[in-house]
Design a binder for these strands. Sequence first.
DNA 1: ATAATGACATGTT
DNA 2: TAACATGCCATTA
Length: 126
Amino acid sequence: MESSFKERVINIIRLIPHGKVASYGQIALYAGLPRAAREVGWILKASKDDMPWWRVLNNRGRISIEGNWEADKGLQRKLLEAEDIEIREDFTLDIEQYRWRITQEEAKKLQLPHEAIERIIQKYKL
DNA sequence: ATAATGACATGTT
DNA sequence: TAACATGCCATTA
C-alpha cells in the first residue's frame, strides 16, 4: 500500500542535492506531517534503494543508524564525506552548515499542503 | 481492537 | 551539554 505521504517523502528526499542534508523532522514537515519524523525513518528503511538515504540525518546532526545497521553507518559517513561533508569521529556534524532548504518552486511542484508551506516558512524560512 | 516498537523531535531537568 | 520524558503515527505483534 502506498500512501500519498510516503510518496511525498520519497519525492522530497530525491530533491536533496549533492552535498546537502536534511533531518527526518524536516522531511516530515515538508510532507505535511510535522510530527511524523519516525515515519520518515520507516520509509527510508523500506525504500533505501530508491533515494539518497544517506542525506537524511537526525536534527542533532547525528547519523542515527545503530544496532544491526552498523555496517551502513560507516557507509553513510563514507558517502557523506564523498560529498565534501565533514563528519566528526563520533558520527556527528554541523547540520546547519549543510542543511538543504526546499525552494518555493519545488514545494509548488510537489503540491505540498498549504499548511506545510506555512510551517516551513515559519521554521526554516523557505 | 489493543499494545508495543521505531534509522525521530522537542521541551524539561 | 547530556539524560530523561512525552508526543507522533505507521507498522507489527
